[in-house]
Design a protein around this nucleic acid. Sequence first.
DNA 1: TTTTGTATCATCGTATACAATTCAAATCAG
DNA 2: CTGATTTGAATTGTATACGATGATACAAAA
Lengths: 224, 224
Amino acid sequence: MNGEQKDSRDRYSLRGRVFESIREDILNGRYEQNTELKEATIGAELGVSRTPVREALRQLELEGLVTIIPNRGAHVNRITAKDVEDIYVIRSMLEGLCARWATEHITQEQLDNMEETLCLSEYHTGKKNYEKLYELDSQFHEQLYEAGGSRILNHVLSDFHDYVKRARKASISAEDRSVRSTEEHRAIFEAIRERDADQAETLAREHVKHTIENIEAHGLEKLM
Amino acid sequence: MNGEQKDSRDRYSLRGRVFESIREDILNGRYEQNTELKEATIGAELGVSRTPVREALRQLELEGLVTIIPNRGAHVNRITAKDVEDIYVIRSMLEGLCARWATEHITQEQLDNMEETLCLSEYHTGKKNYEKLYELDSQFHEQLYEAGGSRILNHVLSDFHDYVKRARKASISAEDRSVRSTEEHRAIFEAIRERDADQAETLAREHVKHTIENIEAHGLEKLM
DNA sequence: TTTTGTATCATCGTATACAATTCAAATCAG
DNA sequence: CTGATTTGAATTGTATACGATGATACAAAA
């Protein structure tokens, strides 16, 4: 069901699979806050030894999704409602910046790919196929991050994008929002294609702001 | 010589020490780009087995400081001049946001701690003690990040702050810049204390912008 | 000469073994 | 009964063993 995957991540090694598995479980809210993650237990559940589990936990610690107390163990650090709010404020600024940079750097091929995503989005918006729409929304933003041409900015934005996936999923599944969201994507794309950096930046900022407003209107607290 | 250390990082375990060691070496530019990092070699150099080295390399991979090709090995990913430029643009926005949030959240105790740092900075600016000044500069910014009250924002800003440490060190070691920088810190602090969020945001943004301008004036390329 | 096959070797990926640490329950002194 | 101490089970931290993977060199074939 889930094709999304950062290129840098190793989905084939056991460690990579364990990492993705625990990460998804945390980001999808399948653990209570502070749930203890025991190496042996997780290893047994996933049918691997402690070694790859340890490595995965160490990576998650660096991301802040897990807290490790030496000699005591690892605990889940959920993304809180406040985290989501903070991320949206930060993303609003940074996606604006990214759209600006994309205006300066984007290639014709990247433009074509974005437009293809956009067309599919418009099609599935009509069909109210929210599952697919979420995927396309992710894809549009990832293409934007790529087009920004900054590995640093891409890195933080991609992480944030993952962290708020639950909120984004909820948001996109409301009909009025999905329509507006797709329209806003189109507008951002047009501004980039027209090389209007100011407009692209403004639209991208507003788009992110509208998204969080929609999420909060539907109740962020009860989501997280 | 180096007291700085994120609380979350484990400096006592072998893995923690290996992680910090390699990370410092990369951030201080002691490796060529794409240097191959062999688990056994590093382990031998630091007198530990491959296990903690592997865990450290996996963490560095997540940060983007190392690229791991499955079954082939780990390679150094240096921070490039472009990365530094990008980081300063991003930091300019985010430190502004952080100063704004700090204005809303800061406690009296945090204000007192910042002022103490500031006094020491002013003292050592006069003494031209650049080593100490760099440390105090780091401390001021970390206190600001803490005062912002957002673990998410703190996390990204702290990482970025580490990533540009070489540039920051070079910048602070120029007399005119060190004086100006300390003055700007003082101004940001006053704005926060006076609860003037707009002013704090503007000053923080400008401070970061001035820093990168100074660095570029002295030649960023040859630094990295 | 170029290509292809194969042996060898360095290195990684994972499992396992063992040491160190923590926490709590049991024991003991007062 | 209280509080300190000991003991032991559970868990993590580190080292090592072993199989798997991919690189390299060189020989055989085209």
